[in-house]
Computed example of a mutant assay.
Amino acid sequence: LRRRIVATRLPPKELVADRSQGVQLATIQELARYWATDYDWRACEAKLNALPQFTTEIDGVDIHFIHVKSRHENSLPLIMTHGWPGSVIELLETVGPLTDPTAHGGQAQDAFDLVLPSIPGYGFSGEPAEIGWDSGRVAQAWPELMRRLGYTRYVAQGGDQGAAVTDAMGRQAPEGLAGIHMNLLVTALGGGAMPAGTEEERAALEQTKTFRASGFGYFLEQATRPQTIGYALLDSPLALAAWMLDHDTDAYYKISRAFVDGKPSGGLTRDHILDNITVYWLTGTGASAARSYWEGGQATARAAGQAPPEVKLPVGFTTFPGEIFAAPRSWVEKSYPNLIYFNKAGRGGHFAAWEEPELFATEIRAAFSPLR
């Protein structure tokens, strides 16, 4: 890894002062310097190994998951799904607040038993050997995982790709699933018509248009040509890093400041960012993770013209201000009529659990409180 970082042939400096041409050279140079000299993977390894980890085969794929039981009685089982370009790494700092709330400003009755699986093709889970592993199929695997763990009643949460999985779980309504919470409105991102009558709604609509116009490149490439980008992601650690950093404007500038200025935004530190990228590199899952977007596109094409099942389960939703778009309550209610919790958080962005784990945990406690 270090030899490859040092040997990278870098492009010349961008010709603009912002990220409009992509990941800036100064950011990637400082990331490369830190990764090759100061970064300690063993620290991340120790953090992972301090948690109970398992694998189990479901539908022909080895599923890796972290399973932390709370010491408090009557804790609520929660399965939480990461996104892209994330992994279970982005959720690790929420383990303490969610499973041991009394040590983090909560009460014993707020406790969860926490299950953190790696999506097939991501990190430590196996890569599917056949097509068809879209978010709906992952959503079918998670209830089987919870059943094997002995849980007959549980809740689910997700952001980014994890929101797509959690949304699908809500529509499939497997036995035992009591409710869901998300922090990305995938129904709006998927092109669904949303109200645009108020100033808040129009602002959110403009945000979605801006993202599609200037921040959708990675999405289109992974949805149409994951194998092509995979050659770079598997061969060059800095290509992998740049690809993963170039997700959304808010997160990019926060990550860039962490490396260039040494000023992290909450949990988005240099070490945490590189922990996540290094998991992708060591497991060689850049291409297989990208393929999940292709699977999503294929599933959308198959379902063209068919209205998805309604989510009748209780739904909680939190809008974080730095998200790709700040979903208004009216948009969430249009997508999920049985909305039992909605809140606008005061800080945090697309990687909310990673950036603001304590605040994120507070939101999860509040959202699922009526279901205990």
Score class of each variant (00 low, 15 high):
Gln222Leu: 05
Asp113Thr: 08
Leu25Asn: 04
Arg372Trp: 05
Thr55Tyr: 05
Asn338Leu: 09
Leu177Asn: 10
Leu359Glu: 05
Gly132Pro: 15
Val165Lys: 11
Lys312Met: 12
Thr166Asp: 13
Arg148Ile: 02
Ala232Lys: 05
Leu91His: 02
Ala139Pro: 00
Leu245His: 07
Ala239Lys: 00
Lys209Met: 10
Glu356Leu: 11
Ile340Phe: 05
Tyr39Trp: 01
Gly158Gln: 06
Leu234Glu: 08
His350Gly: 10
Glu90Trp: 04
Ala242Leu: 02
Tyr151Arg: 09
Phe211Ala: 09
Arg372Ile: 05
Lys13Ser: 04
Glu333Asp: 08
Pro77Tyr: 01
Tyr336Cys: 10
Phe65Pro: 13
Gln157Glu: 10
Ala290Ser: 15
Pro337Gln: 08
Gly22Glu: 03
Arg9Val: 15
Gly286Pro: 12
Gln207Cys: 10
Glu93Lys: 14
Glu333Phe: 06
Pro11Ile: 00
Ile79Lys: 05
Asp246Arg: 12
His82Phe: 07
Val165Gly: 06
Gly266Ser: 03
Gly176Pro: 09
Gly192Trp: 10
Val88Ala: 07
Gly217Ile: 11
Gly348Asp: 10
Pro264Gly: 09
Gly179Lys: 04
Ala327Phe: 01
Ala361Gln: 06
Arg171Cys: 13
Trp294Ala: 07
Glu200Leu: 15
Arg329Pro: 05
Asp113Gly: 03
Glu45His: 01
His82Asn: 04
Gly197Ser: 14
Ile255Lys: 09
Gly191Trp: 03
Glu333Cys: 00
Gln222Asp: 02
Pro309Leu: 10
Glu127His: 06
Ser335Gly: 15
Ser288Gln: 09
Thr102Phe: 00
Ala304Ile: 13
Gln161Asp: 04
Phe112His: 06
Gly158Ser: 04
Trp294Asp: 04
Ser265Asn: 07
Thr99Met: 03
Arg3Tyr: 03
Ala327Val: 11
Glu356Cys: 14
Thr27Met: 11
Ala43Gln: 14
Ala168His: 04
Leu177Trp: 02
Val186Trp: 03
Thr319Met: 13
Ile255Phe: 10
Ala213Leu: 11
Arg3Thr: 07
Lys69Val: 03
Ser214Pro: 00
Thr152Gln: 14
Gln107Ala: 14
Asp261Arg: 13
Phe219Ser: 11
Glu310Ile: 11
Leu145Pro: 12
Phe325Ile: 01
Thr37Asn: 14
Ile63Ala: 05
Arg19Trp: 13
Gly179Glu: 04
Thr94Ile: 11
Ile79Ser: 03
Ile255Asn: 12
Gly217Tyr: 09
Met169Arg: 05
Arg372His: 09
Met80Val: 12
Arg270Glu: 15
